[in-house]
């Protein structure tokens, strides 16, 4: 039996009361729509900064969230870098080293992509770290999202600490057999990683099978109606937030239809 660390994702079960979980879920949808519709790096950065402000308002640790999403931040950073590297022959050059230039379009397009990734990731982290799984599921159910979908999200969240523990145990088991995952050529390292990927996948299947049995034995039927013991109630701040989100989203859509909110042309000009 692998042991899940006692402190694993405990914040998932200590919900910060105040905002209705439906508002939080809709905030995620709002961020997604806004970063999809808009392309202006300044506005996208503002949306990201808004998520940072929510982190502080929720009294979450920004450091913990940065740590939790480190792969995402890495992807955002690499995306920015790739735009800079590949978009080097258009627009004004900010800096030139030999034939290679860092251009304004490269920096700004990269910033747009990075800000999109960062805003979505931080919004997800702040919502899921500040809301219990059951609240998320209840919110999805109340928002008429199907029970199977809501359950998939709930179960995925529930399995994160367990799979983290399994992963750690499997790594230790293979290290005990002399594996050094960080040594050797790229091919050799990839081969070594099968030593933990295969057991991890098999364990995930076994755990999922056992969990599905346990859920069935507790009368779970994805297509039957069910109740949620948690009651949700919008209050005045919730409604204010919903109205603000709705208005800003409509404004963003309208602005884009009128030709605003994209990458500013003057920044792209030569």
């Amino acid at each position: 039996m692998s042991t899940v660390p006692a402190n694993a994702n405990l914040d998932l079960v200590t919900p910060r009361r105040g905002v209705d979980p439906r508002v939080k879920v809709l905030y995620l949808a709002w961020v997604f729509v806004m970063v999809s519709v808009l392309a202006d790096p300044l506005i996208l950065s503002l949306i990201f900064l808004m998520a940072v402000a929510i982190v502080f308002a929720s009294r979450l640790s920004l450091f913990d969230l940065l740590k939790a999403g480190r792969l995402g931040w890495f992807v955002a950073g690499v995306s920015w870098l790739l735009w800079i590297v590949f978009l080097r022959h258009q627009g004004t050059a900010l800096l030139s080293v030999g034939s290679w230039s860092v251009t304004v379009p490269g920096v700004l397009n990269g910033l747009s992509v990075a800000a999109r990734i960062a805003a979505i990731l931080l919004a997800f982290l702040v919502v899921f770290k500040s809301t219990s799984t059951r609240s998320v599921m209840t919110a999805l159910y109340r928002l008429r999202v199907s029970v199977p979908f809501a359950m998939v999200i709930g179960i995925t969240l529930r399995m994160i600490p367990q799979m983290q523990a399994e992963h750690a145990t499997i790594l230790e088991a293979q290290r005990s057999r002399g594996v050094e995952f960080n040594k050797g050529s790229l091919l050799a390292r990839m081969r070594k990683h099968t030593a933990y990927i295969i057991p991890l996948v098999l364990r995930a299947l076994k755990i999922t099978r056992d969990l599905s049995l346990a859920m069935e034995a507790r009368a779970f039927d994805p297509y039957a109606s069910r109740t949620f013991s948690e009651t949700l109630q919008f209050n005045a701040p919730d409604i204010t937030l919903l109205v603000l989100m709705g208005l800003t989203m409509l404004a963003a859509l309208g602005a884009r239809l009128l030709g605003y909110g994209g990458m500013p042309a003057q920044w792209l000009a030569k």
Binding site: L12, V13, T133, R134, L157, R158, Q162, D210, M215
Partner: peptide
């Protein structure tokens, strides 16, 4: 552990 569905005892 395989039977834990909720993230709190009550849940």
């Amino acid at each position: 552990e395989s039977q834990l569905v909720g993230l709190s005892v009550e849940e």
